[in-house]
C-alpha cells in the first residue's frame, strides 16, 4: 500500500507528459501545439521536484548561519533537483516565447495558424 502511495507522483508525471505529447501531435492549431509542449515540459519539471522531496524533510536552510540551535536530527529535502529546475523553467519560457513569436510571424505571413491550412497553402505555392 505504501509503495503505491509513494508512486502516485510518477503516475501524475506520466499522465501530464502524455497529455502534453498528445496535444502536440493531435492539435492543428499552432498555439495549442505550443501549450501542449509546455505541459510536456512541466511534467519533467514535476518529476525533478518529486525527486528532491524526502519524507518528512524540511526546507534545506543552514540553521547555524543564523545563530539558531542546530538540530542534527532534522531531515532536509534535497535542494539540488529543485535548483536545476530553475534553469529548466527558464529554458521552457524561452522556448514558449520563441515558439509564440514564430506563430505570430506565421500568422502575418500566411494569414492562418492552422497546420492543415498551412500545408495546403505550401503545396499550392510549390517551393
Amino acid at each position: 500500500m505504501s509503495a503505491i502511495a509513494g508512486l502516485w507522483v510518477y503516475a501524475v508525471v506520466i499522465v501530464l507528459m502524455m497529455t502534453g505529447l498528445y496535444t502536440v501531435i493531435s492539435r492543428d492549431n499552432l498555439v495549442k501545439k505550443i501549450m501542449g509542449l509546455n505541459i510536456f515540459q512541466v511534467s519533467v519539471i514535476m518529476f525533478y521536484v518529486a525527486l528532491g522531496k524526502v519524507d518528512g524533510g524540511t526546507a534545506p536552510i543552514f540553521q547555524a548561519a543564523h545563530g539558531e540551535h542546530v538540530d542534527t536530527e532534522v531531515v532536509f529535502s534535497n535542494p539540488l533537483p529543485h535548483v536545476l529546475m530553475l534553469t529548466a523553467i527558464v529554458v521552457g519560457i524561452a522556448t514558449t516565447a520563441l515558439g509564440l513569436a514564430l506563430v505570430v510571424r506565421i500568422q502575418e505571413a500566411y494569414g492562418t495558424v492552422e497546420e492543415a491550412e498551412l500545408v495546403r497553402i505550401d503545396q499550392e505555392g510549390g517551393l
Binding site: L21, V24, L30, F40, T95, L98, L102, I106, Y110, L118
Partner: peptide
C-alpha cells in the same frame, strides 16, 4: 515564409 514553418516544426521536434 516557409522558413518560419520549418523553424516551427524544428522547434517542436527539438524541444521534445
Amino acid at each position: 515564409r516557409r522558413a518560419l514553418t520549418a523553424a516551427f516544426s524544428y522547434l517542436v521536434m527539438g524541444t521534445i
